[in-house]
Design a binder for these strands. Structure first.
Length: 595
RNA sequence: GACCCGAUAGCUCAGCUGGACAGAGCAGCGGCUUCCUAAGCCGUCGGUCGCAGGUUCGAAUCCUGUUCGGGUCGCCA
């Protein structure tokens, strides 16, 4: 087995898997050899990257292995050293030294640097040829389809910062999956059906004003919605009336249908403005109403399978001890969220033949998706396992969930505008002569908001804090853009063109090699971020590589006299910029050339 | 009441398939610009990893209990 491993195995992936490849191959080689030598069925070798500088580039905890194979530590360490020395991987290491219970390996930095640049050049030519998914694309998702449901705002409610999260997290995950070779179907499952329309129609008919709605549709509809809830507190009968209206809407009442259609249209127009600002696109805008005629077959099938039963006048599917029953049909015969989600799911399976169905929806709907999966499972469809709730934390205000019903929401458009305004002021302050200020301010502001959301693990709650959102120093979007812009500026000043003329031996110094190592992790980072549906993994990575560059830039002069050294440095920072720009694009941010 | 999620530096968070002295950013303090953009860099200060047990050679990481915060629990989505 070991002899089949080739030294330059890592180029096969062609997309920045350098460090990961070395680790996994080293692990495989050692495990195979140890198994054979000790006649064991299982030996686990851990290869990790130590945090301390004096501990080498990679290290292997030896005491663990010594215990497994039942030999003394020094003997085991010596054995491992010998195994590494005699393996095909040997040329990659400049030293292998035992220290404490660990075996510390130093990489041959020039060899690794060369490997990373080989990957980089492959990525560049791929991007140039317009192949794959651009720069450094992966193929782990080839032949597989993922449908991803995100944004999905509720019509006639404001586009809140809660929907912002779904929108930008979903967009980034879609980009990441596409990068990995998946066919991605982006679906905006508009909340354009449901009892809320009964409420709004009721409110509109009782105290609405056609002219006002025409003037300022979204705001007015929200006002009606909030007003309805305030009044309904005093007069609960209104809720019943709203449900009755929605039921009639489902039955096809023409007046209600006309109002519904109007509300839907004006709301959608408002959303489109936000999508444009965020540069978000969908493959489908089929909302809940689209499934209006597709629910009965689902209900029929549930009935045929004997899964549906009546309970207190409503139709439910019993999900056993662990989950509360799923309410499929209200006592008045009208449908519910889960009914429409089931219809949508089956439609998506038929239409797109997905291998994975993702739902980028808040934590608060965890139970809903557990129920959805459970119902599909009960119906006997094996693809219940392919349904995944990509949950995200609530947007809190003063530690509490925001509520539309009480009118406590922050409008996304306001947040974006505020961020854009702040970038404009900053530009005015730092670079007043900048050309195309307005456009650049927009790109900085919007990207700042996007990055602020994506940099933290999505499932954690998100305390809404506008000041925090538009901060431009430290771990922020502008920091990444600024880093990229700096590099561009340096390269332009010297009229740099990539020609692959790099002196790898110069890259062995610590300041260079930290960057090389980080670059060599890019592919693995994207893969992890995509498979874990965690854009924050990529976001943190980008912050790290940007910080490495800035640190490098603070210590080393790039425009040095020595041409060989200058070109090598320029190639290195060019590599950093391409990764930064590519990563930012994946997150849905905008890249810029100056700021 | 039941179930789910969270708790790491003053603040915002990484780290969580167990590994060598727990890391960033912000805030504070002290520096850096005759030279590639200071939206930056360097240094410094700062932590009983909520608490208590347990498993382990080794626990922020796994298990149990507990406290606090948030979410959810059939006719909203």
């Amino acid at each position: 087995m070991g002899s089949e491993v080739r030294i330059y195995f890592f180029y096969e992936k062609g997309c920045f898997y350098m460090i990961d490849s070395i680790k996994t191959n080293l692990k495989a080689v050692l495990e195979t050899a140890l198994r054979t030598a000790n006649d064991l069925s299982e030996v686990n070798v851990v290869v990790e990257e130590p945090k301390r500088a004096n501990q080498g580039d990679l290290s292997i905890p030896v005491f663990m292995i010594a215990k497994t194979i039942g030999k003394p530590l020094p003997e085991t360490a010596a054995h491992l050293q010998e195994l590494i020395r005699s393996s095909d991987l040997a040329p990659l290491f400049s030293s292998v030294a035992p220290l404490g219970g660990f075996l510390n390996l130093s990489l041959d930095k020039a060899a690794v640097a060369q490997g990373v640049f080989r990957d980089f050049e492959a990525a560049l030519s791929e991007a140039k040829a317009g192949e794959g998914n651009g720069f450094g694309s992966l193929s782990i998702g080839a032949g597989q389809t993922v449908v991803i449901d995100y944004s999905s705002p509720n019509i006639a409610k404001p586009f809140s910062v809660g929907h912002l999260r779904s929108t930008i997290i979903g967009q980034a995950i879609g980009n990441l999956l596409a990068k990995c070779g998946f066919r991605v179907v982006r679906i905006n499952h508009l909340g354009d059906w449901g009892t809320q329309f009964g409420k709004i129609i009721y409110a509109y008919k009782h105290f609405g004003d056609e002219e006002k709605v025409r003037q300022n549709p979204i705001n007015e509809l929200v006002k009606l919605y909030v007003e309805f809830h305030e009044m309904a507190k005093e007069n609960p009968a209104m809720e019943d009336e709203a449900r009755r209206i929605f039921n009639e809407l489902e039955q096809g009442n023409p007046e209600y249908l006309r109002l519904w259609s109007w509300f839907r249209e004006v709301s959608l127009e408002d959303y489109m403005k936000v999508y444009e600002l965020l540069d978000v696109r969908f493959d489908s805008y089929n909302g809940e109403a689209f499934y209006n005629d597709k629910m009965q077959p689902v209900i029929d099938q549930l009935a045929t399978q004997g899964l549906l039963k009546e309970d207190q006048g409503a139709m439910i599917v019993d999900l056993g001890e662990d989950l509360p029953p799923a309410l499929i049909q209200k006592s008045d015969g009208s449908t519910l969220y889960i009914t429409r989600d089931l219809a949508a799911l089956f439609f998506r399976k038929r239409e797109y033949h997905f291998d994975k169905a993702l739902y980028v929806v808040g934590n608060e709907q965890k139970l809903h998706f557990e129920q959805l999966k459970a119902v599909v499972r009960k119906m006997g469809f094996p693809f219940w396992k392919d349904i995944e709730h990509v949950n995200f934390g609530l947007v809190l205000q003063d530690g509490k969930k925001m509520s539309t019903r009480k009118g406590k929401v922050v409008r996304l458009a306001d947040v974006l505008n505020e961020a854009i305004e702040l970038s404009r002021q900053t530009i005015e302050d730092k670079n007043p002569d900048l050309e195309g200020k307005a456009e650049i301010a927009r790109k900085i502001g919007v990207s700042a908001v996007i990055f602020n959301d994506l940099k933290n693990y999505r499932a954690n709650d998100f305390e809404f804090n506008l000041e925090e959102m538009v901060k431009f120093e430290g771990q922020t979007g502008p920091y990444l853009q600024y880093t990229s812009v700096r590099i561009t500026s340096i390269l332009n000043a010297d009229d740099f063109h990539y020609d692959g003329n790099v002196d790898y031996s110069l890259l062995s110094q610590e300041v260079f090699f930290d960057i090389i190592k980080a670059a060599g992790d890019y592919g693995k980072t994207i893969e992890r971020a995509a498979l874990e549906a965690s854009p924050s993994i990529l976001a943190k990575y980008l912050l790290n590589i940007a910080s490495l560059f800035n640190s490098f830039y603070g210590r080393e002069r790039i425009a040095v006299e020595d041409l060989r050294e200058r070109r090598t440095k320029e190639h290195l920072i060019y590599l950093v910029r391409e990764i930064l720009d590519d990563g930012m694009r994946l997150l849905g941010m905008k890249t810029i050339e100056r700021m």
